[in-house]
Design a protein around this nucleic acid. Structure first.
Length: 443
RNA sequence: GGUCCCAUCGUCUAGUGGUUAGGACACAAGCUUUUCAAGCUUGGAACCGGAGUUCAAUUCUCCGUGGGAUCACCA
């Protein structure tokens, strides 16, 4: 059973989240795999919001799911809301009851109210159910200890197992890709399918994404909603790339993929069986690689939002240096602070202008010499600046020339190299700052 | 506890009945045009254990061990 062979009927997959909270990366990875599998096979990808639990489902969570999928670029072909399918759930519920395959049971409500309710229980045939999981092979379960499980809170209030089975059938789902935490649910759902005369869909249970403590990823353990990565300035292509390669690897040594490339290389047989832990550092590295993939213009547009009061000309000179410092665009706000000296002239402190045992006089001499060659420097080319200034530094002591120069221009002892500072600041501003430093050294 | 799933560097993984077990992240060292960042080079780092099958097991089988999931009138 490989996705490389062609199926006789059209592949239809679905992502079926319940809108009861903000979904994290682990949840969306299920969507990514279902999406990749459908697209790889020219199939259909369906989004179904499972909102039958009226009390816990919230519109804001549904909106967040929609926003996240759109941001990630996972376009769905059809959209369903489970709560709008209650009629057909009731229809099949009645069918089951009339055929003696389910029955109404008068029981005390579990909410402690003491009210007697008419819930619907499935008449368990108590048999061994076997299915061939596309990822892990044959899985057999004796359903006897499941007893007559509840499938509806009332004839008009279907529960998960019934609703899922009916909707998957009615929507023509051929392949169900979901987390392995659903493996125990599969036998019950297959029992209902059999009672209703539905065919069994194909199942592929994905390995779980774990927290660093090796337990299921959860909000409580710090798992962030996908939209928070959006807010922090991560690239959707990087998030996609990163989560697709957790539990899946096409083989080979390529690490960076676009969505289209992922669709191309996707192969269900290459999905991992064991669960995996999220590695934030690799996410950051992946994101940086995707930033590098962006065009100069795309990068600039975002940088400009943070460095909004910078002159375009100066910012373009600074762009490469800025990009080098970040892993995701949200870090730009820190870089704005770090690079404040590019925008506002600041006053260097005497101690930082000094270099080891070198006398003030010598430092002043070096700075004056650099000042004297300003007219000969080609300020439109950082390499040319480097050639000339470095030659002098190399002859007269790298440290005692370059360190005071850097502090003169940036006032900091940690900054880009002085050649870059000269290039970005330009001739006029550089002269002013160096003269200012000489004054401080002279006083 | 019952049931089920899983097992290659710290993490994500490639891979094979015979390999120096490969790559990436992270880490360490060195280099590069002082510092920071980036980049480059090098390095340390893994087949859970035991039995069986076999000329040969990391790979196949079984048993352990370990980890995980699940046992709702949630999904």
């Amino acid at each position: 059973m490989s996705d490389n062979i062609s199926y006789t009927s059209k592949i239809v997959t679905r992502f079926a989240p319940s809108p009861t909270g903000l979904l994290h990366l682990g949840n969306y990875r299920t969507a990514v795999f279902a999406y990749l599998f459908a697209r790889k096979n020219d199939g259909e990808f369906i989004l179904r919001i499972e909102d039958t639990d009226r009390e816990r489902s919230k519109k804001e969570f549904e909106d967040n799911i929609l926003e996240s999928l759109e941001w990630l670029g996972l376009k769905y072909d059809k959209f369903f809301r489970q709560s709008e399918n209650i009629e057909r759930h009731t229809f099949y519920l009645n069918k089951l009851i009339s055929e003696g395959k389910a029955y109404i049971s008068k029981e005390e409500a579990k909410d402690g109210s003491g009210v007697i309710k008419e819930i619907v229980r499935f008449k368990n045939p108590n048999k061994v159910v076997v299915f061939n999981d596309l990822i892990r092979g044959s899985i057999a379960t004796d359903t006897t200890d499941l007893e007559d499980f509840v499938i509806a809170k009332s004839i008009t209030e279907p529960l998960f197992h019934l609703a899922v089975v009916v909707d998957d059938f009615e929507e023509g789902i051929t392949h169900i890709l979901r987390g392995e935490d659903h493996i125990p649910n599969t036998p019950r759902q297959m029992l209902i399918q059999e009672a209703l005369g539905f065919p069994h869909p194909n199942y592929a249970h994905l390995p779980l994404v774990l927290s660093p403590d090796r337990t299921k990823l959860s909000k409580r353990k710090g798992a962030l909603p996908v939209t928070s990565y959006k807010d922090k300035g991560y690239l959707p292509s990087a998030i996609l790339n990163f989560i697709a390669l957790i539990g899946f690897n096409p083989g080979g040594e390529k690490e960076i993929f676009t969505l289209d490339e992922l669709v191309n290389v996707f192969d269900m047989l290459k999905i991992q069986k064991g669960s995996a832990i999220l590695n934030e550092e690799k996410l950051n590295w992946t994101n940086k690689e995707h930033i590098k993939l962006e065009s100069k213009e795309e990068q600039f547009a975002i940088i400009k939002k943070y460095f909004n009061d910078y002159d375009d000309e100066l910012l373009k000179k600074l762009q490469i240096t800025i990009i080098e410092r970040i892993t995701h665009y949200g870090e730009l706000s820190e870089v704005v602070n770090e690079f404040s000296y590019f925008k506002e002239r600041e006053t260097p402190v005497l101690e930082k202008l000094l270099w080891k045992e070198t006398t003030k006089e010598n430092i002043i001499k070096h700075l004056n010499y650099i000042l004297s060659m300003m007219d000969t420097l080609n300020f439109s080319n950082v390499e040319k600046i480097k050639e000339v200034v470095y030659a002098y530094a190399n002859e007269n002591g790298k440290g005692e020339v370059l360190s005071p120069l850097r502090v003169s221009l940036s006032t900091r002892d940690k900054s880009p190299d002085p050649f870059m500072l000269l290039y970005v600041l330009g001739k006029e501003e550089s002269i002013i700052r160096i003269k200012n430093a000489i004054n401080i050294l002279s006083s």
